[in-house]
Design a protein around this nucleic acid. Structure first.
Lengths: 117, 117
DNA sequence: CGGGATCCAGCGCGATACTG
DNA sequence: CAGTATCGCGCTGGATCCCG
């Protein structure tokens, strides 16, 4: 199924959600709508640029909705759309796998002692 | 769960398996052990270099085993380890999601008509 | 507060050529 | 057959400045 189309499909997701921040942003929004600054604070390492880009891509792909309130202090809220929420379970599956196996992987890595240089 | 650790876990998998070829290579090996050239042919767009690098990383992480036969025509076979195989179901879940939603996503993209410039 | 624009570093990745 | 070595480009992503 994964490579039935020569990898086009899997590549398509990877290109969309497997970049550095997308999945993390979606996961963060899973808890509920958040404002720009809140997101920026809840995703530790992200830069404001990448948050903006990520949100715009997600919005563009219909995974996240953007609601701007025309108030004096600008207030913009981001939330997951149904499609966005549907990403959570598979993402969780992957995360579950990671939690289970990453330690084993890192143990393996350590064994080989990849000389950093 | 995903971001319970600030994203470290999810980032860890992304860094390992979400690069351009890893998941695809694992998926290809799911069918059984393959030789270098066979892999190279079964993964359409991949270059020798990336196949080598990907396999070495996978081997390093304990997801793929490498068996070299010291024969006159060198013969090397790659196969998934149990850990590698365990990646298949979550990967399939993600692929399933993609197959279901990517069309919708692309429809959304088309709507917005991202001006290429 | 919520971003857009710009500059710059790193490296992911492909093409090519060479080796055992 | 199964790689390794080198080069170079393009994209990702961080830092910074600026604007409504």
């Amino acid at each position: 199924m994964i490579r039935g189309d020569g990898g086009r499909t899997i590549r398509a997701i990877l290109d969309r959600i497997c970049n550095k921040w997308t999945l993390l942003t979606v996961a963060t929004l899973d808890a509920g709508a958040l404002r720009f600054t809140e997101l920026h604070q809840q995703i530790p390492g992200i830069s404001q640029r990448m948050l903006t880009l990520t949100l715009r891509h997600l919005e563009h792909d219909g995974l996240v909705s953007r609601t701007a309130y025309a108030q004096v202090p600008p207030r913009v809220e981001y939330a997951l759309t149904p499609t966005g929420k549907s990403l959570i379970p598979p993402a969780l599956a992957l995360a579950g796998w990671a939690i289970e196996h990453v330690p084993h992987i890192e143990a393996n890595r350590a064994l080989h002692q990849t000389p950093p240089e």
